[in-house]
Write a protein that binds this DNA or RNA. Sequence first.
DNA 1: TTGGACACGTGATTC
DNA 2: TGAATCACGTGTCCA
Lengths: 213, 213
Amino acid sequence: MQGNTSSNPSSITENSSLKFSPSSSISYFQSQILSFDNTTTQFYGFDRTLNSPKQISTQTTKGSSKNQNFGTKTTLGKRSAARTYDHIIAERKRREKLSQSLIALAALIPDLKKVDKASVLGNAIKYIKELKERVSNLEEESKKTRVVVLKDPELNGDNYDSSSCEEGSIENSCGSESLLLQVEARMSGQEVLLRIHCQKKNNILVRILALYV
Amino acid sequence: MQGNTSSNPSSITENSSLKFSPSSSISYFQSQILSFDNTTTQFYGFDRTLNSPKQISTQTTKGSSKNQNFGTKTTLGKRSAARTYDHIIAERKRREKLSQSLIALAALIPDLKKVDKASVLGNAIKYIKELKERVSNLEEESKKTRVVVLKDPELNGDNYDSSSCEEGSIENSCGSESLLLQVEARMSGQEVLLRIHCQKKNNILVRILALYV
DNA sequence: TTGGACACGTGATTC
DNA sequence: TGAATCACGTGTCCA
C-alpha cells in the first residue's frame, strides 16, 4: 500500500486520508476547509465560486482541442455548490465503505501476502474456487455411499426399500419410527457399511449378521 | 453497473488552473482548483477516446502527444505530456483489470442479485464465511468419529492402538499393510461403526463379531 | 528515473 | 427530482 494520501489537490477539506488501514473512521463531517484564503470561507468554500460566473474560459489552449465540449456543458447542468459538496461527501463515504469491505474481504483470505486491491480480489477469487472445490469433494465423499435398506428375512416383515434415502439418521431415513430393527448397507467402492439399529440384546449383532453373511 | 461511460471530464490537458490556489500553501505546481463552476477544465487533450461505452480502451493512439507541453508553469515540475498520457493509460489499464476481477468474483457468487461493487464485495464476504463454515462442518462431521483400533484377541497378536488415526483408508491408517485383519471401531454419539478389513472367508464377519459382541 | 498503486474530485447516468 | 453508482483524469507517494 502506498500511495495516497491526500494529495488533494483541490481540497475541500482536510481529508482524512484513509488509506487502507482500518480504522480510518470517518472524520469528515466537519470538514474544515482549508480556508480559502480567508474571507469568507464559509462553509464550503465553494460557493464563492459559484457565484461568480466566471466562465472563464477554459482556457488554455493549446490549440488543440478545445472545442467540443463545453458547450454542452453549460447548458443545463450546474450544480449548486451545496450540492456539489454533498456529492463529494457522499462519494467519499462510498469509497470508505468499499475500502472497508475490501479490508474485511482480505481478512478472510489465508496467507495473503500483498494487500493491494488487485491481489485481494485475485486471491479472493482463487480462495472461493478452492473452498467450493473442497466443499464439493467433502460432500461427494459423504454422498458417494449409496444406502440400501435390505430386506429383513425374519425379524421384520416387509420393509424392503432399495432406496434413495441418502443419508441421515435412521429416524428420518425411511420414516419408520416404530421399527424394532433396521438394517442398512452402504456400499462405497470396496467397502460395505452395515448400519444396524435395534434393541440391545445378547449377541444380537452376530445373530443379525448370520442372516446375511 | 451503471454509470459510466467515459465522460471524461477533465481533460487531460494540463490544466488550467485558474483562480488561485487555495491557501494552504502548497503550491503544487499548477494547482488546479476546484472547478466548481464549470467551465473550467474541460477539454481534452488527448483522448477522445471515448467512444461510448466502455469498451476497452486501448484506444487509439496517441494522438496526442503532440500537444502540450507547454508551459504554463513550465519549469520543473510538470510532467511531460507523454508522461501524463502514459499515466492515464496505465491507470485505465489498472481500472480495467480491477473491474474484470470484480466481474469474475461476482460470477462465483450464487444468487447475486445486484452487481454493484458494494454488493459484490459484501456478498463475497458472506459467501466465503458461509463456505468456510460449511467446510468446517463437513470436516468436523467426518472427524467427529473417533477411531479406535481394538485389540484383536486371537487373530492378531498385538496391535492395540487406542489412537489417533483419525480417518482415511485402512492402508494408511496405521501403517500396517501386512495385517491380515484389522478392526476399527468408530464411535459417534450413539452409533458404533465397525470397520473390518480382512480376507474373504466364509462367515468371517460373523466369526469376527463373535469375538467382540 | 520510472511504474505501480491509491484516494480524490467530478460529470454522467440510472432508478 | 435526488440519491447512489460509476469511470475518469489527476496528484501523490513508494519501491
